[in-house]
């Protein structure tokens, strides 16, 4: 038994509403992020990521309130990204109840921001998101939601982010994002081999087989799942069962022990 491969449910939201995801006909409000968080947690998600893709300054108080509501009911880790531009932004997210913050464009604009946050809040709470696109046999980093070519090499930037204190890398293949043609296994493998922190693979998942491939051949520690879950193409319990059958160690959906059983465990 060793470290489990994680399945992370990602909620893209803007203005306090989930952008994708209306498959849960039984949810009173399918656009409510907290309801979806709970549903995915109950389904066996190992972690939840909330990405505020709007991330306007005006929406910040509502986002903090949302983090607080989600953290109050979740019993698994919660990461939040979107609009983290300063140490104060990161601290506010953690104070509201997030366990980790995901930083992207602001880290590229000011790499020392990663160090500042990691030194004061701990590496475990710092995820650096790297959006990468293939470029002449390697991968280049893009900033500002994939719109700005930075000229940086993706593997080199991921390594630098880790040296500066990133506890995890959230790696998105821009080429594969939204295509459902599978994760970029080569990109994921290149970054996973270069850093000694968990790499969360994102972008391109179209099937359970894609998830298995990125966790095995890709060397990823976790797979980020968005539309695959939101549109009901796979369900987490079945996906975990498939992973386990394929020899990928996942957190097993065992029934929780009763407190009396926990108390009976002795050395």
């Amino acid at each position: 038994m060793s470290l489990r491969k994680r399945l992370i449910a990602c909620l893209d939201m803007t203005d306090g509403r989930v952008v994708k995801g209306t498959r849960f006909a039984d949810l009173v409000d399918a656009g409510d992020p907290v309801g979806l968080c709970l549903r995915y947690a109950a389904d066996g998600a190992d972690e939840i990521v909330i990405l505020d893709i709007g991330a306007t300054v005006d929406a910040r108080p509502a986002l903090l309130a949302l983090i607080s509501r989600a953290a109050a009911v979740l019993d698994i880790p919660l990461a939040v990204g979107g609009g983290v531009r300063s140490y104060d932004d990161a601290a506010a997210f953690l104070d509201a109840g997030a366990d980790k913050v995901s930083i992207n464009s602001a880290a590229l604009a000011d790499p020392a921001l990663v160090s500042r946050i990691a030194q004061r809040l701990g590496s475990q709470s710092v995820v650096v998101a790297v959006d990468a696109a293939a470029h002449e046999g390697s991968w280049r980093v893009r900033s500002v939601a994939g719109t700005l070519e930075t000229g940086r090499d993706a593997v080199a930037w991921a390594s630098e982010a880790v040296e500066r204190g990133a506890g995890e890398i959230l790696l998105t293949s821009i080429d594969r994002d939204g295509t459902r043609s599978g994760y970029d296994l080569q990109l994921t493998r290149a970054v996973a081999d270069a850093v000694r922190v968990p790499v969360i693979a994102s972008g391109g998942a179209g099937s359970a087989a894609d998830v298995i491939a990125v966790l095995r051949e890709g060397g990823a520690s976790a797979a980020l799942l968005a539309s695959l879950l939101h549109f009901g193409m796979v369900r987490l319990p079945e996906l975990k069962a498939r992973l386990a059958e394929s020899g990928v160690e996942v957190r097993r959906p065992l029934p929780a022990p009763r407190p009396e059983e926990v108390a009976a465990w002795r050395g």
């Binding site: 470290l3 489990r4 968990p198």
Partner: peptide, 20 residues
């Protein structure tokens, strides 16, 4: 290889029972 140890892992009781 990976330190810090971040993520879910088995908590294995001496009795053989496990939880994550």
């Amino acid at each position: 290889r990976m330190v810090p140890h971040i993520g879910w892992n088995a908590v294995e009781m001496m009795s053989g029972v496990q939880a994550d």
